[in-house]
Design a protein around this nucleic acid. Structure first.
Lengths: 227, 227
DNA sequence: ACCGCGACTGAACATCTGTTTAGTCTGCTG
DNA sequence: CAGCAGACTAAACAGATGTTCAGTCGCGGT
């Protein structure tokens, strides 16, 4: 029953066990003793190595953030044909960390802030690059769009369990990634609407809301929404 | 210092305090005594009314889910000009519940499952309706696209703190909603890519991955991806 | 007036929490 | 060999936790 974690130092085993447990149940729901048991050590050794439970958490935070930031920029970047294939076979290696990352983004720890900032930064850089190459359409608010694109990539991580349940298979498995890829790029390339009716309606609504003194919103007939 | 919650029954006050606390700190991080103090009652009364802490949680779950499902279908639906304006002034009323909802979607409680299923169902219905009206472009995988669209709407709820921090103001405030609306509809109407290069690349990658025996992936020059 | 019942409480309870303490074992260094 | 340092542990600790208990209060029905 012994796994590949046997050849790790106790310190690393504790960290791995903690990451697994925190990702599965959340920081507060996991006791030091549970982590210790899973790592095959005593609870006191965790304190010996990490200081206290919060320090263990930040150690896990830093480790996971580093694992994604240091050598995984390409996972966040926009997909190209070859990158997609590479990613498909790679995702499983990061399985244990993906759930941890999803949980981090919900909280507001310093490490989570750093991670989110970094993800936004990389997304922005990629989009800027693509814009310079003439690959992007014009957009009214590039920074907000950056956030939206980043969130599109992050959402499946945070809702992994729900999405997997609805889909019937894990979205982050190779098969799931395969199924996600095409619809995502369709959405990013053509949108979903064939008409500009919704967009036009929103433009009017926003205009009349941001400058209501110039255009006093009486009951003029412009808001006759279809459906 | 007393607020509008004074005219609620003790049972309701406990529920409200619990929802607030669970949303802010998470279920496991909140003690019965803290909730009791916030509600102005004793811890024993919580047990008297709800049974135990887990029952209190499911009561909160059910209440929040019902609040959103019963009379808030329109919040989830695709925005039209007048709906947007209505929603802008409405969001604040649901503030306390929004964070709770965001936290729910991360876990996999029965109530969260029901909620997610319902959100997907409504999203699917709206999209089907719009498809029937000829408003949607063709898509390769409508069900997957439904999930993507739903996740686009849910992601800001789950990452509210992070997004607010980056933006400098709460995305779910009226001002934030206003700023989000236009980029979102631009994305849904035009996508972000002016070229089909990425989409074409993905189509090739998916095709060669799903049917690799028909097209043995030798080093043919189709995967020369630009930067 | 009395009864009963539900709302409500403070204190006690057992258990679990993170952490400390005192100590053992092992391997390296002088 | 002595001695020191660090890995490691079992046991104890103080405090917090969810829950139970015994009892008080106030109110509607008879």
């Amino acid at each position: 029953m012994r796994s590949a974690s046997d050849d790790l130092t106790a310190r690393a085993r504790i960290r791995e066990a903690a990451i697994r447990a925190f990702a599965r149940d959340g920081f507060d729901a996991v006791s030091m003793r549970a982590i210790a048991k899973d790592a095959g050590v005593s609870a006191a050794l965790i304190v010996h190595h990490f200081g206290d439970k919060n320090a263990l958490r930040t150690a896990c935070d830093d480790y996971v953030v580093a694992a994604f930031i240091d050598d995984k920029h390409e996972l966040i970047e926009a997909p190209t044909a070859d990158r997609i294939r590479a990613a498909l076979n790679d995702v499983e290696r990061y399985g244990p960390y993906v759930d941890y990352l999803g949980r981090m983004l919900g909280d507001s720890t310093p490490a989570a802030d750093r991670l989110f900032d970094e993800i936004i930064r990389v997304t922005r850089d990629v989009l800027d690059e693509q814009r310079a190459a003439g690959l992007l359409v014009e957009m009214s608010d590039p920074e907000m769009t950056t956030l939206l694109v980043a969130m599109m990539g992050l959402a499946p991580l945070m809702m992994r369990a729900q999405v997997g349940r609805v889909l019937g298979h894990d979205q982050l498995s190779p098969a799931g990634m395969l199924r996600t890829t095409l619809p995502t790029l369709e959405l990013l390339t053509h949108g979903i609407y064939s008409s500009t009716a919704f967009l036009d309606g929103a433009r009017q609504a926003v205009a009349s809301e941001t400058a209501p003194e110039a255009a006093p919103r009486t009951d003029h007939p412009t808001e006759g929404g279809a459906s």
